Amino acid sequence: MQNRTMESVIASSTGKLLRDHFGKGPEALYVTVAKPFITIYLRNFLAPMEKVLLDIENEVKVQDTRDVLMEKIIPEMNTILSAETGEKMAHIYYDWSFPNQSGLIFAEMETEEPVTEEDYDYPARSMVHQEIDRITREAQKPPHALRSYMLNSRTLFTKREDILVMIEQELINSGFEEELRLTKRRLEKRLLNIGFLEAELGQKIEDVFVDWNFEEDTGYMIFILK
């Protein structure tokens, strides 16, 4: 019950924050607090001007505008999440699925409580890891470490470490972090064999979101299941 109350407060505060900055909030927010992870899934989140830009195939412009707004929002998000959970946030990430008019804001807490994959176990882990390892090898290099957590029946959270190749590191050092992030998002989502994952999980995949902490050479991929 306590987690549900916490999730409700986070959903309400996040919805207001997005409305204040974007002029329109999502029609629905689904919050999951499963320490040390928090996910906030946004449904039907697309402002009228963004829809116009997407209609003329200007997705990059929408991405750029949202990135500017999210840079302003993240400190406030940090305050909301820390106040409700009683934990500091290590990082806050986000990604969008414009075809589905959806998005995901997610965070990892700075908690000393140990968490293992077994705490969020699921039967298809080895096959999911096989597929994520495959696309990571194809796009970059084999991950040094790969972990995954089924936070609830609809949220599969995966984390990869040490995946950047030298050319990517040079692009980051040269100030092309944003361009690299957008390119990697498109590439990794395109490489995924969704049919294979759905068959192994026994569930349809509604959305896939990815983001990175380039400084720590860590990548996240989150699946929203039906």
Rank of each mutant, 00 (worst) to 15 (best):
P114H: 04
Y149W: 12
A139M: 09
R125T: 07
E113T: 08
L156Y: 06
I132L: 15
Y122P: 00
L164I: 02
Y120E: 03
F157M: 01
Y120A: 02
P114S: 03
A124M: 07
E117H: 04
H144R: 15
Q130A: 11
S153C: 09
E113D: 04
M166L: 12
N152S: 12
E117A: 09
D162L: 15
P142V: 09
I135S: 04
L164R: 01
Y149S: 01
V128N: 02
E117P: 06
V128C: 04
M150T: 02
E118M: 10
E117I: 06
I132E: 01
E138V: 10
R154Q: 11
Y149A: 03
D133N: 09
K159N: 00
T116M: 07
H144L: 13
R125F: 08
D133H: 11
H129S: 01
S153D: 15
E118L: 14
L164E: 01
R125D: 00
I167D: 01
Q130C: 07
A145T: 12
Q140Y: 08
A145K: 13
M127W: 07
I135K: 07
I132M: 11
S148P: 06
K159V: 10
L146P: 06
M150W: 13
R147S: 10
Y122I: 00
R134A: 10
F157P: 11
R154Y: 11
P143Y: 12
T116H: 08
V115H: 03
Y122Q: 00
H144G: 15
D121Y: 02
S126N: 01
H144N: 10
L151S: 09
P114F: 00
E118V: 13
L151R: 08
Y149H: 05
A139D: 04
Y149D: 00
L151P: 15
E161S: 11
P123A: 07
R154L: 05
R160Y: 03
N152M: 09
L156P: 09
Q140P: 01
Q140K: 10
R154S: 15
M150G: 01
R154T: 12
A145I: 13
P143Q: 08
L151D: 05
E112D: 14
P142D: 03
D119M: 09
E138T: 14
H144D: 14
V128P: 02
E168V: 04
T116G: 05
V115K: 04
I132N: 02
Y149M: 03
R137T: 05
I135W: 08
N152K: 03
E168N: 03
D133E: 14
R125E: 01
T158D: 01
K159L: 05
V115Q: 02
I135M: 13
S153Q: 13
S126A: 07
L156H: 09
Y122D: 00
Q140F: 10
A139Y: 06
T158L: 11
T116I: 09
I135G: 07
M166S: 02
P123C: 05
V165S: 02
I163A: 02
D133I: 15
E131Y: 08
K159M: 11
L156F: 13
T136Y: 13
T158H: 04
A145R: 15
T136F: 14
M127D: 05
